[in-house]
Amino acid sequence: MKKIIIHCGMPKTGTSAIQVQFAQGRKNFLKHGYDYLNTGVDKKAEKGGISSGNGFELARAYMPQSHPSSLAKQRKNITEKTRRAIHNTDCHVIISSEFFSATTRPLLGELAASFSDLGEVNLAFFVREQTTALVSSYIQQIKRRGETKFPDEFSSDFDIQKQSMLLYNSYFTELSFHIDNANILAKPYELAKSNPAGVLGLFLDMIGAKIPLEDLPVDKRVNLSPSPQELRLLIEVNKHEPSKYFSDMVVELSYAAGRSNIYAPQVILPPEVAKKVKTLFHKENEDFFINFAKCNNIYDNEVDNSSYINLRDVTFDATVMVDVFAGVLSRLDKRLEKLEQTII
Rank of each mutant, 00 (worst) to 15 (best):
Y245C: 03
Y245L: 15
P270I: 06
K220F: 06
R221G: 07
D219T: 14
H240I: 08
P270S: 11
D219N: 08
N261R: 09
Q229G: 11
L231Q: 05
N223P: 01
L253R: 10
Y255T: 07
S254Y: 00
L216Y: 03
L253N: 11
H240M: 13
D248C: 07
K220M: 12
F246T: 13
N238M: 09
V250A: 07
P265R: 05
G258H: 02
S225I: 08
E252L: 00
L253D: 13
R221K: 14
R259L: 11
V251S: 02
E230R: 09
R259G: 02
P226E: 04
P228T: 13
L253Q: 05
V250F: 02
D219F: 10
A257V: 10
L231M: 14
Y255G: 02
S260T: 15
A264I: 01
P242M: 14
D248T: 10
L253W: 02
G258P: 00
L224D: 07
P228G: 11
L233T: 04
Q229D: 15
D248S: 04
K220Q: 15
S243Y: 03
L253C: 04
D219L: 15
V237R: 01
K239V: 10
I235M: 12
Y255M: 06
P270L: 08
D219H: 03
E272C: 04
A257E: 10
Y263H: 08
L216C: 06
Y255H: 06
F246Y: 06
V237Q: 13
E272K: 10
L269M: 15
K220A: 15
N223E: 08
S225P: 00
P228V: 12
I235F: 05
S260V: 14
L231S: 11
P242F: 07
P242R: 09
Q266Y: 01
V250Y: 04
R232G: 09
E241L: 07
M249N: 01
I262H: 03
K239T: 08
R259K: 03
S247V: 05
V237S: 12
N261H: 12
S260L: 01
R232K: 15
Y245V: 14
H240R: 14
P226L: 10
L216N: 07
I235V: 13
V222W: 00
N238E: 03
V250D: 02
N261V: 07
S225Q: 14
R221P: 01
L216D: 05
N223Y: 02
N238C: 04
V222L: 05
K275F: 01
D219I: 13
V237M: 13
I262Y: 09
P226I: 11
S225H: 15
K220L: 15
K244I: 14
L253F: 00
K239A: 14
S225M: 13
K239F: 06
Y263P: 01
K275E: 12
A256G: 05
S243I: 06
I235G: 02
M249R: 07
S254T: 03
A256R: 08
P270W: 02
K244A: 09
